[in-house]
Amino acid sequence: MISNQQPPRHHGLRFSLRDAGVLIAGAGLAWWLRVRGNEMWWIVPVAVGHFFLFCNVFMVWRRWELLWAASLVLNVLFHVAQGNLGWWPACGWQVPVTLLVIGLQMRSPWYHGVWAERVNPRLRDYLDGRL
């Protein structure tokens, strides 16, 4: 029998063994690339770290995640075309995009990530499925 009932909604930080495994694997890959002299090693922790932040900490909507990812790709391509392979030029431009995405998400009535109890007055509506 198939149930149309949705599982209960939760809020706050999410962390599992799978998350730990992905973070450890990403750190290992970044280290491996760096010791082999790959100048683009920093892309791995940027991508994995933001994936964790967006999915587990701030629970960012998929469309914001995809827009952020597109901006990262364009940002990195621009800096690589300019000959800047280091982490600072691209990250210097990407951090404001990250803060914008997180800020927009936290102002949403559907926000249910970390600190949702403090910043979302409509959290109960979201958790009860009224939004």
Rank of each mutant, 00 (worst) to 15 (best):
28 G>C: 10
29 L>M: 11
29 L>T: 07
30 A>F: 14
30 A>N: 06
31 W>F: 14
31 W>R: 01
32 W>N: 00
32 W>F: 13
32 W>G: 00
33 L>A: 03
33 L>R: 01
33 L>P: 00
33 L>F: 11
33 L>K: 01
33 L>Q: 04
33 L>E: 02
34 R>I: 06
34 R>E: 11
34 R>V: 10
35 V>P: 00
35 V>R: 07
35 V>C: 00
36 R>S: 15
37 G>N: 03
37 G>E: 11
37 G>M: 07
38 N>Y: 15
38 N>Q: 15
38 N>H: 15
39 E>K: 10
39 E>G: 15
39 E>I: 03
39 E>V: 12
40 M>G: 01
40 M>Y: 14
42 W>V: 07
42 W>Y: 04
42 W>C: 05
43 I>R: 04
43 I>N: 02
44 V>Y: 09
45 P>I: 11
46 V>C: 06
46 V>Q: 04
46 V>K: 00
47 A>V: 15
47 A>K: 01
47 A>F: 12
47 A>M: 13
47 A>G: 06
48 V>L: 02
48 V>Y: 04
49 G>T: 04
49 G>P: 02
49 G>F: 01
50 H>T: 13
51 F>K: 02
52 F>L: 01
52 F>H: 10
52 F>D: 02
53 L>N: 08
53 L>F: 12
53 L>T: 10
54 F>S: 13
54 F>I: 14
56 N>H: 15
56 N>M: 05
57 V>D: 02
57 V>E: 06
58 F>C: 07
58 F>Q: 05
58 F>I: 10
58 F>M: 12
59 M>A: 06
59 M>N: 09
59 M>F: 06
59 M>G: 03
59 M>R: 13
60 V>K: 04
60 V>F: 03
60 V>R: 03
60 V>W: 03
60 V>L: 08
61 W>G: 12
61 W>S: 12
61 W>D: 15
61 W>P: 00
61 W>C: 01
62 R>G: 08
63 R>M: 08
63 R>Q: 09
63 R>E: 10
65 E>M: 08
65 E>K: 14
66 L>A: 10
67 L>N: 09
67 L>E: 11
68 W>C: 07
68 W>H: 14
71 S>N: 01
71 S>V: 07
72 L>F: 15
72 L>E: 06
73 V>S: 01
75 N>C: 15
75 N>L: 13
75 N>K: 05
75 N>V: 06
76 V>K: 12
76 V>R: 09
78 F>P: 00
78 F>S: 09
78 F>W: 14
78 F>L: 11
80 V>Y: 10
81 A>P: 02
82 Q>H: 03
83 G>D: 06
83 G>A: 05
83 G>R: 09
83 G>W: 07
83 G>C: 09
84 N>D: 12
85 L>C: 01
85 L>S: 05
85 L>F: 15
85 L>P: 01
86 G>Q: 13
86 G>N: 11
87 W>I: 12
87 W>V: 10
88 W>F: 05
88 W>K: 06
88 W>H: 10
89 P>W: 07
89 P>S: 04
91 C>A: 03
91 C>P: 00
92 G>L: 08
92 G>F: 09
93 W>E: 11
93 W>V: 12
93 W>M: 10
93 W>A: 13
93 W>S: 06
94 Q>E: 11
94 Q>N: 00
95 V>F: 05
95 V>Q: 00
96 P>G: 02
96 P>I: 03
97 V>G: 08
97 V>D: 08
98 T>Y: 11
98 T>E: 11
98 T>G: 05
